[in-house]
Design a protein around this nucleic acid. Structure first.
Lengths: 254, 254
DNA sequence: CGATAATTTGAATTAACTCAACTGTTGTGG
DNA sequence: CCACAACAGTTGAGTTAATTCAAATTATCG
C-alpha cells in the first residue's frame, strides 16, 4: 500500500484507478486527476481470489471496503441450520462491505463465485482522505445512498411481485449491469447457481428452474446451463411494466 | 437557518440538539459539545406537520435530510394504478431521505401518519460541515451504513419468513424502537393502518388482521384497534428464533 | 346522525412450495 | 480413460400458506 504511483509493484499490476475501465462506475467518478492520484495511493490491489474463497465472514473486524474488478462475489448469511440466505451478487465495478461501516464488523459472508480480483480500500484511510477531498466524500455518500435505493427497490420487488416478475427483474438487472461494463446485454454467463438465484429472489430453486424453462418456451430466453441469451428484451421488460413505481432503478445488488 | 445558537427563534423553539432527548440516537451521537453546536446552527426546526401532509414526493429536488422528533412518517411509492407500496416507517430519532442523496431527487413519498415534528438538515451544509468535523462525517457514514444493514435484514425477512414471522418481527422492531426512545416496549399505539402494515410486510391486509386475532387468541398480544399490548414478549421472540442469522438487528425501517 | 373508511371474518382459489424421482454435469481416483 | 460419486438442474404431483373476493361489523368524521 501507499506505493508511489510511479513505482510498478512486484506482480506488475498496480491499482491504477486512472487507467481502470471501471473508474466511471466506481469511487473515482467525479474526481479530478490529482484526487484520483491520492485515492490510488491508499488502495491495495489484492491477488486473485479463487472460486469458493471467502473474502470476509460474520464477526470479522471491518477494515476495508472492496470493489470487484473482475469476477463475481456473493454475499450471504447462514442460519444455525446451515442454509444460506443470499443477500446480493457483486459484479465488476460494484462495491461491497458498506453494511459493515455501521458497527465495525461484518455481518455476512462474502464469497467468490469465480476467480475474482478485488481492490481493497482501507476504510480509515478512505475516510480521512474523504475529509480533505470533498468530491470523494460526496461520491462515498452517493455510493452508500445508491445502495440504500437499490435495496429499497429489492424490497419493493419482493413485496409486490410474482416469481415470474422477480426473475425477469433479476435478468434485466444483470443485463443492465453487464451492458454498463461494456459486455453484452443479451448474452452472458451466470456466475451463480439456481439455488443462489432462488435464495436471492425468495424463491425455491425448483421455481427458478421452471421459470427458465418457461421463459425459453416463450422465446424470451435461450438457456443452456449457465449460459443465458436474451432473445426478447422487450418482452422481459413488459413483464414488470405494470408494477413500475415512479422512477425505477432496476433491483440490482450493488 | 444559520441562526446564532444564542438567539431564540420567533416561535420560541430552537433546534437544540444539545438538549434533545434523541441526541444519542441521532446525528449528534459521538460529537463533542462544540461540534454539536456547529451542527445546531445548520438545522432548521420546522413547524409541526399535520397528519396526512406530504414532506416530499417523487421527483422533488433533494435538499435536506429529515429527522423525526415526534410523531411518525411513512415512506412509500405509488404505482400507475394508484396503489401504495410502503417502504418504511420512521419514528422519533430516525432519519429519512437518505436514499435521495444518490441522484439529487426524491424517489418516494414521505407522509406524516400523525402530527409530526421534524428537524430539517440542509444537505449541502451538512456535507460541508462533515468535511471539517471528522466525527460528524463518521456518524453520517454510520447512519447510511445502518440503513443499508436494516434494509438487508428486511430483505432477508421477506425472503425467508412466513406471515406470522413477519408480523412478529415487525412488532418486535417497534417494541425495540419505542423502548430505546424511552417509551414502553410492551404497550404502544400503532400509527399506521393494517393496510400499511400489510404493504410494508408484503402481506394482504386481511392476513395482517387475521394474525392480530390469532396472536391475541394465543395470549401473545392484547389488541384493541391501534392499541397493542405485548403480553408475551418471549413467545414473540421465539417465533423468529429459528430463522435468526448470525447477528440479528431486527428488521426496522430506519 | 349518517356516510365513508377501516377492520374483521368467512369461503374459495391459486401461486409457489415441498417432496420425490430422474437426468445431466463435473470432478476424482483407480 | 473410464467408472463412480457427488453435485446441479429439471420435471412431476400433491400440498399449503396466503391470497382474492365477498360480506358483515365497527370506527371516524363532517
Amino acid at each position: 500500500m501507499g506505493a508511489n504511483s510511479k513505482v510498478i509493484s512486484i506482480d506488475g499490476i498496480k491499482a491504477a484507478c486512472s487507467n481502470c475501465s471501471l473508474a466511471t462506475l466506481c469511487l473515482p467518478f467525479g474526481l479530478d486527476t490529482e484526487d484520483v492520484d491520492r485515492l490510488e495511493r491508499i488502495i491495495k490491489r489484492n491477488r486473485p481470489v479463487q472460486r469458493g474463497q471467502i473474502l470476509y465472514r460474520p464477526g470479522d473486524r471491518f477494515r476495508s471496503l472492496f470493489v470487484v474488478k473482475t469476477g463475481a462475489v456473493k454475499t450471504f448469511t447462514q442460519t444455525a441450520a446451515g442454509d444460506e440466505h443470499v443477500i446480493g451478487f457483486h459484479l465488476p465495478g460494484e462495491m461491497l462491505g458498506l453494511d459493515a461501516i455501521q458497527d465495525d464488523h461484518h455481518g455476512c459472508f462474502a464469497k467468490a463465485l469465480e476467480t475474482t480480483v478485488v481492490c481493497e480500500l482501507p476504510f480509515e484511510n478512505l475516510e480521512s482522505l474523504s475529509a480533505s477531498v470533498p468530491s470523494l466524500q460526496h461520491q462515498l455518500l452517493r455510493l452508500l445512498s445508491r445502495e440504500v435505493s437499490v435495496e429499497a427497490n429489492m424490497i419493493s420487488l419482493l413485496n409486490n411481485s410474482t416469481a415470474e416478475e422477480r426473475l425477469a427483474s433479476f435478468l434485466l438487472s444483470l443485463s443492465e449491469r453487464f451492458k454498463r461494463r461494456g459486455f453484452s446485454a443479451t448474452d452472458f454467463f451466470l456466475a451463480m447457481s439456481r439455488q443462489d438465484i432462488g435464495s436471492y429472489l425468495g424463491l425455491a430453486l425448483e421455481t427458478v428452474s421452471r421459470l427458465f424453462t418457461r421463459f425459453q418456451e416463450h422465446g424470451v430466453l435461450e438457456v443452456d446451463r449457465k449460459h443465458v441469451q436474451i432473445k426478447n428484451l422487450d418482452e422481459l421488460k413488459r413483464m414488470l411494466k405494470h408494477q413500475t413505481p415512479c422512477h425505477t432503478t432496476l433491483g440490482q445488488s450493488s
